[in-house]
Design a binder for these strands. Structure first.
Lengths: 150, 150
DNA sequence: TCTATTATTGCATATTTATACAGATATTTC
DNA sequence: GAAATATCTGTATAAATATGCAATAATAGA
């Protein structure tokens, strides 16, 4: 039973270098004396729950969910960058205008930031209201959001 | 420019139901009045960094890295289940025997558990030594590991 | 040990996904 | 506004991945 030894090697390989395809992985394994087909690797990848992620170069590569963690905020930033039209305030409400249809996702992005001073948010189609706990914190939060964009 | 509204919808869709393929996603979007081809969705998925994960039913589905977080420990458990042969102790060292070649991965799995009483671990080919800070904690840790397996 | 059951894998291929290219839209610059 | 530049998308297809099936190997039970 050498399946698990192989899967262990697979994990090592994808950690130490960029593996773009299952075919590549098969070749790398062959170098280590492990000879299997792409089909088997497809099954291994399913079992190991490996995922295809974009590497720094924009290419796809295989990785684990763990190591992809840090790219989460990346995604939020991208969402903001791409959809926020303006950020403003009315008393303790931060008003964010987005391109049409993107308010919901911006809202949940803000929620996921878990900012202490944010009480909650509500999103329509192209507008998000963010309720801030104190007037003092409003400008900070706005600065923060702008910071993400730039 | 409705790309981001569409991407926002995509995120909603994959959160509320299991979407198995990009083709499926295209159909679901069409129901919402958004008409795009699989090619565009492939690009959206790359931009949103969505991943293909196995759903409860064993099928593939699209998801976000965030929501897949909880499946991490899952993977570790699977690794243990699949590769641990025995767990024993010698003084303050927990000795784990694994199937050949799997010790490295078991070692890093244990490291990733971040157990306070574990000082560190070292792995050969089929054996892992886990250094425990106190004799008192040894049995706890062993129980813990067995707990994972059963 | 022999047989039955289950797990693993390759082969062939269907299915799914990514992308080169070109045309269409939008954005910026002058 | 026109030209230049960049962004977005569909088409067609190449590339990559998943899987039904059959063969083989491992495991369990009598």
């Amino acid at each position: 039973m050498k399946k698990y030894a192989r899967q262990s090697k697979i994990l090592e390989l994808i950690n130490e270098r960029d593996i773009e395809t299952q075919e590549d992985l098969a070749l790398a394994l062959k170098d280590l004396g492990i000879d299997v087909t792409q089909a088997t690797i497809s099954r291994d990848i399913k079992e190991l729950r490996l995922i295809k992620v974009t590497s720094k170069t924009g290419k796809y590569k295989y990785g684990t969910i763990e190591e992809s963690q840090n790219s989460i905020s990346d995604r939020l930033v991208r969402i903001f960058k791409n959809s926020i039209v303006s950020i403003d305030a009315a008393m303790n409400i931060v008003v964010i205008r987005t391109i049409p249809g993107a308010a919901q996702i911006c809202g949940s992005a803000i929620d996921s930031l878990q900012i202490a001073e944010v009480g909650g948010s509500i999103a329509g189609d192209d507008t998000v209201f963010v309720a801030v706990r104190s007037l003092d914190a409003v400008q900070d939060i706005i600065d923060n959001l702008y910071g993400l964009i730039n």
